[in-house]
Computed example of a mutant assay.
Amino acid sequence: MWKYYALLSAIFAAMTAILSKVGVKGINGNLATAIRTSVVLVLAWGIVLANNDFKSVKELSKYNLIFLVASGIATGLSWIFYFKALESGPVSKVAPIDKLSIVFVLIISFIFLKEPLDLKTIIGGCLIVGGTLVLIL
């Protein structure tokens, strides 16, 4: 099932790039990020409440909170820089560079999470880097 969720994530990420580029036209990227973040906040809490998942809050550990807060900070910074890039750059170039995050995930997950890197993964990562370079140069 995770593969379907990942594919849906990619589709919505593509829609996000296009919609964001149109939405950021003529406004400051920080304002665009704040509006987008507010919508995500309401949507996420709405889903939690609709699924009656709020009761799980008491199961959160200090460890969970530290890493979720750090993840939130990283997400916020990613979005701020993404919108700054979209303000002046073409989405067809910004989005591929942003997707280099996949390569960074492969490297960081190998180093810190001890996840295996097989030949297919290494080749795929190299193809992503190569494809990005082709698109942006």
Rank of each mutant, 00 (worst) to 15 (best):
35 I>G: 03
76 G>W: 04
77 L>C: 10
92 S>T: 14
124 G>S: 10
92 S>Y: 08
12 F>E: 02
57 V>I: 15
4 Y>Q: 03
69 V>R: 07
20 S>G: 09
71 S>H: 05
102 I>C: 00
1 M>A: 11
31 L>R: 02
75 T>F: 13
113 L>F: 15
101 S>P: 00
102 I>P: 01
100 L>V: 09
31 L>F: 14
32 A>D: 07
64 N>H: 14
122 I>K: 08
106 L>Q: 01
99 K>P: 06
125 G>T: 01
96 P>Q: 06
125 G>N: 02
113 L>D: 10
25 K>D: 12
108 I>N: 02
78 S>R: 05
47 I>H: 09
73 I>Q: 02
64 N>P: 04
88 S>H: 11
114 K>D: 10
3 K>P: 03
64 N>V: 05
103 V>N: 02
17 A>I: 03
75 T>R: 07
78 S>V: 05
29 G>C: 06
53 D>N: 09
110 F>P: 06
120 K>W: 13
115 E>V: 05
81 F>P: 03
66 I>R: 11
126 C>D: 00
24 V>M: 04
34 A>P: 01
6 A>P: 04
99 K>L: 14
124 G>C: 09
40 V>Y: 09
6 A>L: 13
103 V>W: 00
96 P>R: 04
118 D>P: 03
105 V>F: 01
128 I>E: 00
47 I>S: 06
29 G>Q: 03
67 F>L: 07
58 K>P: 08
65 L>Q: 06
7 L>R: 00
20 S>N: 10
77 L>M: 14
130 G>D: 00
120 K>T: 12
32 A>N: 09
74 A>G: 10
90 P>V: 04
85 A>G: 15
88 S>V: 13
13 A>C: 07
104 F>A: 12
58 K>Q: 12
31 L>H: 08
17 A>N: 01
100 L>K: 06
18 I>G: 04
66 I>E: 09
2 W>K: 08
135 L>A: 14
51 N>L: 15
23 G>N: 04
79 W>R: 00
22 V>P: 01
28 N>P: 01
58 K>D: 11
16 T>W: 05
115 E>P: 03
21 K>P: 01
112 F>M: 12
11 I>D: 06
8 L>G: 11
63 Y>M: 07
96 P>L: 00
49 L>H: 09
28 N>G: 07
26 G>P: 08
45 W>T: 13
25 K>T: 13
16 T>M: 11
54 F>K: 11
30 N>S: 10
56 S>E: 15
16 T>R: 05
97 I>H: 03
66 I>T: 14
65 L>F: 11
75 T>A: 12
25 K>W: 05
62 K>A: 14
56 S>R: 11
79 W>E: 06
116 P>N: 10
125 G>P: 04
114 K>G: 03
100 L>F: 07
85 A>D: 12
13 A>Q: 06
13 A>E: 08
20 S>R: 02
38 S>P: 00
75 T>M: 11
5 Y>V: 12
50 A>I: 12
58 K>M: 08
63 Y>F: 13
113 L>W: 12
81 F>R: 03
7 L>V: 15
96 P>Y: 01
83 F>H: 08
129 V>I: 15
48 V>I: 15
8 L>C: 12
122 I>V: 14
72 G>C: 03
128 I>R: 02
108 I>K: 01
105 V>S: 09
68 L>W: 09
50 A>C: 13
